[in-house]
Computed example of a mutant assay.
Amino acid sequence: MSVVTEEIKAKAEFYQGDQLCQEKSKELLKEILLPNGLLPLKDIEECGYVRETGFVWLKQKKETTHKFQKIGKLVSYATEVTAYVEQHRIKKLTGVKTKELLIWVTLNEIYVDDPPAGKITFKTPAGLFRSFPVTAFEVEEEAKEVKEAVEVKEV
């Protein structure tokens, strides 16, 4: 059963469709100063953001597993991912797990220390945590697009 009720949707900036939700999720990550590749979801059906509380959700057609190549970690995203966001931080995260050794571990908080070039830390409900370079979660395609736009302006 979904945590996202019609009452929550009524208060939210609400979007449907994969392409629009991909754009909006990247915009949100940029707005709260987190790396743009943190939510590599596929086939997103809907997403929403309640600004007054910071509550966000993303619903995708099926569970997705993504490997962050720069750190060699597998992360699983459920069909529904929810959280509360603020600057440099995602709290009360649901629907995200990471593989440590042979088991999947639930994550419930993500935050950046010493932004923008610092470390990004992932915490579990048990208080265990692991930190990585922020750059491991940045999508390079956007950096290329920005570079190309700058080159076009210079010509």
Rank of each mutant, 00 (worst) to 15 (best):
D43C: 09
E80Y: 01
G72F: 02
K59T: 12
Y84H: 13
K59L: 09
G72V: 10
I44P: 11
E63V: 12
K61Q: 10
E46M: 08
V85L: 02
V81W: 00
V81D: 05
H66Q: 05
F55N: 03
I44W: 01
W57E: 06
K61I: 05
V81R: 00
V75I: 15
V81S: 02
Q87E: 15
V75L: 12
G48N: 03
L34F: 03
K61A: 11
K42V: 13
V50E: 09
T64V: 15
L39V: 07
V81F: 00
Y77A: 06
S76A: 13
A83K: 05
F68G: 07
L58V: 11
L41G: 01
S76K: 14
V50H: 00
L33Y: 04
E52T: 09
T64H: 11
G48I: 04
Q60K: 02
L58T: 10
E45M: 14
G48K: 00
V50D: 10
Q87G: 11
N36Y: 05
F68I: 07
K67L: 11
L74M: 15
L58I: 13
Q60D: 08
I71P: 00
Y84G: 07
A83M: 10
H66T: 10
A78E: 14
F68K: 06
L33M: 11
V56N: 03
V50A: 04
V56Q: 03
T53C: 03
I71E: 02
K42G: 05
K62T: 14
K70P: 05
P40I: 07
T64F: 08
V75M: 15
V56D: 01
K61Y: 06
L74A: 13
E52Y: 00
T65K: 07
Q69I: 14
I71F: 00
K59W: 04
D43W: 03
A78Y: 06
E46L: 08
G54M: 04
K73V: 15
K42Y: 07
Q69Y: 08
E46T: 11
P40V: 08
L33H: 12
G72T: 07
L39Y: 05
I71R: 00
T53M: 06
G54P: 01
F55Y: 10
E46S: 13
L34T: 04
E80D: 09
G37A: 03
K61T: 11
K70L: 14
E86A: 15
E63Q: 14
E86N: 14
P40H: 02
T64A: 10
L39R: 02
I71Y: 01
D43G: 08
H66Y: 13
W57H: 01
S76Q: 13
E52D: 14
T65P: 09
Q69V: 15
T79E: 15
N36I: 09
V85H: 02
Y84M: 12
K59H: 06
T82Y: 01
